[in-house]
Nucleic acid binder design. Structure first.
Lengths: 241, 241
DNA sequence: ATCGTACATTATGTAGGACATATTGCAACC
DNA sequence: GGTTGCAATATGTCCTACATAATGTACGAT
């Protein structure tokens, strides 16, 4: 809420988008609430042009609906299109973050094993090498698993795997998975040291894909996602800031 | 391309969004291409404001990136966020429609069986009843499976099932699945009469969910998606308009 | 001749006013 | 009391003006 800081020059609509979107996703603007775009302009201290662009984007994400004469109406969560990376990020910043991470975990448990099997069949040799490389990077940085370098290798692993599936829709989930991994680290849901089991499973997936063992890759990836979801539960449940 | 028809009043930006988005997704505007927003305004015969709103939405979907002084740049498909219902629709209208439907089929083969199992565990009694109801509607309209009433029941079945999973992210795929079913009908990829096997499988899923049989629902749903994907291949491959 | 830097050009970012238009809600009338 | 019509209002669109930042070029130095 409140005014927009005039620190970062330009990207004004970006800031307003973040503010408004965050307000809606976190529930500070409840579904059914109506706001007049003129009021928004006044509240944020910007022109109507800027507000209109923001509202258009929110509308395209299904967060709001704009009705002539009635202002913009906040829509219920069921109408949001949940796979916009921005929306994912907002949800990971909302108080219901833990529940949402579990939903993401369930989705990954269905999608990533399939992607692993397809990757074992379709990956290019460069991609197979990149997967092995990523795992090596994870092992080398495992002592600080809650730090940026480990995160980067983890992201590279999963992104490469999804891309290697050869299915553009599975690849399209790379951004979502990345937000999950980032959110997990950012919100201190990662152990300081990487789980040895997790590392071993990542190695196995990479090895199976390298050798073209689809079912093996699928099984190992199932274990990865199950382990990850369990870890969030263990850490996240007590300390629910 | 060309000018915007002045027939439909208002919703101007909507029309431009459809035109521009379609051009990009169908490849008429190739990735890497740069357009000046002033040129766009001139081409469509509208003001810069309208174009700006459209460009913002396209940017939020990852279709374009706007660079100061360099105009808007069309991004490669890997950058698009693939799950926007609009984007799905555009892709189903593009020449690569058949390939995309197979990608969607793979995704559904991972997601919908999981959703069916979860639905068997979590569905409300109203949802269980709605599923049975939807299947009954499909049976009754099965003689014109390529027609609107059958389509409506089919959509109701899958949407209800995804919602009943209790996972908002799976529910979030309802729009995607709906576009698949609609696209399949619109582009004449449905048989005139419904496959008896498909009907029987839908009945089995509904029955399993009604009785709380998760694994059974999962298996039957696997068969549904496999059958659907096979059907598209059979019809779509020869007649690839 | 090539590289680096400084500047002018240029297209976007933002603001704000103007008019058109559709929807809402009230009021009058049947 | 229900229906029709009118007026108020907020959005849709357009236009103009100025600020700003990035690009590409030209100049100078090495």
């Amino acid at each position: 809420m409140g005014d927009i800081q005039s620190g970062a020059q330009s990207a004004l609509h970006e800031q307003i988008l973040e503010a408004l979107g965050g307000d809606i996703v976190c529930g500070r603007l409840a579904p059914g609430a109506r706001v007049l775009s003129a009021d928004l302009a006044a509240r944020f201290g910007v022109s109507r042009s800027a507000v209109r662009e923001v509202v258009r984007v929110l509308e395209s994400m299904g967060l709001v609906e704009v009705r002539r004469k009635a202002g913009v109406e906040v829509l219920p969560a069921s109408r949001w299109d949940s796979y916009s990376p921005r929306l994912i990020r907002w949800r990971l910043e909302s108080p219901q973050r833990i529940a949402f991470l579990h939903s993401l975990g369930q989705l990954r448990s269905a999608v990533e094993p399939l992607a692993a099997r397809l990757a074992a069949e379709n990956a290019s040799s460069a991609q197979r090498a990149a997967l092995v490389q990523a795992v090596m990077g994870m092992v080398q940085t495992a002592r600080d698993a809650d730090d940026e370098p480990y995160l980067r290798h983890d992201i590279a692993f999963h992104s490469t795997l999804l891309a290697a599936s050869g299915n553009p829709l599975l690849d399209g989930l790379a951004g979502v998975v990345e937000e999950v991994l980032r959110g997990r680290t950012r919100h201190a849901l990662m152990p300081h040291q990487a789980e040895p089991l997790a590392l071993r499973l990542h190695q196995e997936v990479a090895a199976c894909i390298a050798s073209g063992d689809g079912p093996g890759a699928e099984r190992a990836m199932q274990s990865i996602v199950a382990e990850a979801d369990a870890a969030i539960g263990a850490i996240g449940d007590p300390a629910d800031d």
